[in-house]
Amino acid sequence: MSEPTAPQVPAIPTARRQALRQHLMNEVTRPARRPQRMLVLAPAAAVLAVVVAAGVIAQPWAPRSAPLIVPVHQGEHVGAPLLLNQMAVAAADTPPPGEGEYVYIRSRVAVAELGDGPARLGPAYEREIWIPRYERGDGLLRQPFLELPVIGVIPDRTTLPDMPPNAEVVDLPGDPDELLAKLHRERDERGRGSSRDGAAFTAIGDLLRESLLPPPTSATLYRAAARIAGVEVVRGVTDAAGRRGIAVARTEQGRRDEWIFDERTFEYLGERSYLVADTADGPAGTVLATAAVLRRAVVPERGQRP
Score class of each variant (00 low, 15 high):
residue 186 E to Y: 00
residue 304 Q to W: 08
residue 47 V to P: 00
residue 59 Q to D: 12
residue 241 A to L: 05
residue 74 Q to N: 06
residue 26 N to M: 11
residue 119 A to P: 07
residue 159 T to A: 13
residue 234 V to E: 07
residue 106 R to C: 05
residue 28 V to K: 03
residue 95 P to I: 09
residue 39 L to N: 03
residue 301 E to Q: 15
residue 138 D to H: 12
residue 23 H to V: 10
residue 181 A to P: 00
residue 101 E to I: 00
residue 261 F to E: 07
residue 132 P to M: 01
residue 207 L to P: 01
residue 125 Y to G: 04
residue 46 A to W: 09
residue 13 P to S: 02
residue 7 P to L: 12
residue 105 I to A: 00
residue 116 D to W: 01
residue 6 A to W: 08
residue 218 S to A: 13
residue 143 Q to R: 12
residue 148 L to N: 10
residue 102 Y to N: 02
residue 59 Q to K: 07
residue 115 G to T: 00
residue 10 P to N: 02
residue 240 A to W: 13
residue 86 Q to A: 05
residue 73 H to G: 07
residue 260 I to P: 08
residue 18 Q to H: 13
residue 61 W to S: 10
residue 72 V to T: 07
residue 224 A to D: 05
residue 106 R to G: 01
residue 233 V to R: 14
residue 272 R to V: 07
residue 122 G to W: 00
residue 262 D to P: 00
residue 260 I to Y: 11
residue 170 V to N: 12
residue 41 L to R: 13
residue 267 E to F: 02
residue 272 R to G: 06
residue 3 E to H: 12
residue 10 P to V: 08
residue 40 V to L: 13
residue 201 F to L: 00
residue 135 E to H: 14
residue 208 L to W: 14
residue 190 R to L: 15
residue 9 V to I: 12
residue 65 S to F: 06
residue 53 A to H: 09
residue 7 P to G: 13
residue 227 R to G: 04
residue 138 D to N: 15
residue 272 R to N: 10
residue 186 E to N: 08
residue 190 R to D: 06
residue 7 P to A: 14
residue 89 V to Q: 10
residue 77 H to T: 12
residue 223 R to K: 14
residue 25 M to T: 11
residue 76 E to Y: 06
residue 2 S to Y: 03
residue 123 P to S: 11
residue 232 E to L: 04
residue 191 G to K: 11
residue 274 Y to M: 08
residue 234 V to K: 05
residue 304 Q to F: 07
residue 32 A to T: 06
residue 24 L to V: 03
residue 45 A to N: 08
residue 202 T to W: 04
residue 134 Y to K: 03
residue 151 I to P: 08
residue 169 V to I: 15
residue 45 A to D: 09
residue 145 F to E: 14
residue 213 L to C: 04
residue 272 R to F: 06
residue 17 R to L: 13
residue 281 D to P: 00
residue 81 P to S: 06
residue 276 V to L: 00
residue 88 A to D: 04
residue 259 W to A: 15
residue 299 V to E: 14
residue 161 P to A: 14
residue 95 P to C: 02
residue 165 P to A: 09
residue 36 Q to N: 07
residue 23 H to W: 08
residue 127 R to W: 01
residue 234 V to I: 14
residue 158 T to E: 12
residue 263 E to D: 14
residue 252 E to H: 05
residue 253 Q to C: 01
residue 166 N to C: 09
residue 140 L to N: 04
residue 21 R to C: 03
residue 289 A to K: 08
residue 227 R to S: 08
residue 210 E to S: 12
residue 37 R to W: 13
residue 113 E to H: 05
residue 27 E to C: 03
residue 163 M to R: 13
residue 306 P to F: 10
residue 56 V to C: 03
residue 81 P to N: 04
residue 89 V to N: 06
residue 242 G to M: 09
residue 232 E to Q: 15
residue 172 L to Y: 08
residue 158 T to A: 09
residue 270 G to P: 04
residue 80 A to P: 08
residue 25 M to I: 03
residue 136 R to C: 06
residue 292 A to V: 12
residue 111 V to R: 04
residue 212 L to G: 03
residue 14 T to S: 09
residue 293 V to E: 05
residue 271 E to V: 06
residue 163 M to V: 10
residue 162 D to F: 07
residue 91 A to E: 03
residue 196 R to M: 05
residue 160 L to Q: 04
